[in-house]
């Protein structure tokens, strides 16, 4: 019975580390930003498992929602002005 949160935490840990590696090593910046958002989303589930629902809500709304869009807005501006292909 107490195994289920444990297994979930293990899976989440693996997924977070994999997404973080993708975010650091990906070739496209768009993919890196999306992977960083995924890390935040998994982290918010991890906070829920750690009995911190307030923090989980904050991370889901701010960390994975708004931050990702801040990146996309700036990347859109940069692409519009002819740069940031790397």
């Amino acid at each position: 019975m107490s195994n289920i949160p444990f297994v979930m935490a293990l899976l989440l840990a693996v997924a977070m580390i994999a997404a973080a590696l993708v975010a650091v090593r990906a070739t496209a910046t768009v993919g890196a930003v999306l992977a960083a958002g995924l890390v935040s989303l998994f982290a918010s589930v991890m906070f829920l498992l750690l009995a911190a629902p307030d923090v989980a809500m904050t991370e889901a709304a701010i960390g994975s929602g708004l931050t990702t869009f801040l990146f996309f807005f700036v990347m859109g501006r940069i692409r519009r002005e002819g740069g940031g292909n790397d």
Binding site: A23, T29, A43, F47, L50, A52
Partner: peptide, 26 residues
């Protein structure tokens, strides 16, 4: 060396710090 990628990396590091702090309180 791409400055946007450096900022993405910093957000990942700050997520890590938050996970560590919450797990200390559990």
């Amino acid at each position: 060396t791409n400055i946007l990628r450096m900022i993405v990396s910093f957000t990942i590091a700050s997520t890590g710090v938050n996970v560590v702090l919450v797990s200390v309180g559990y």
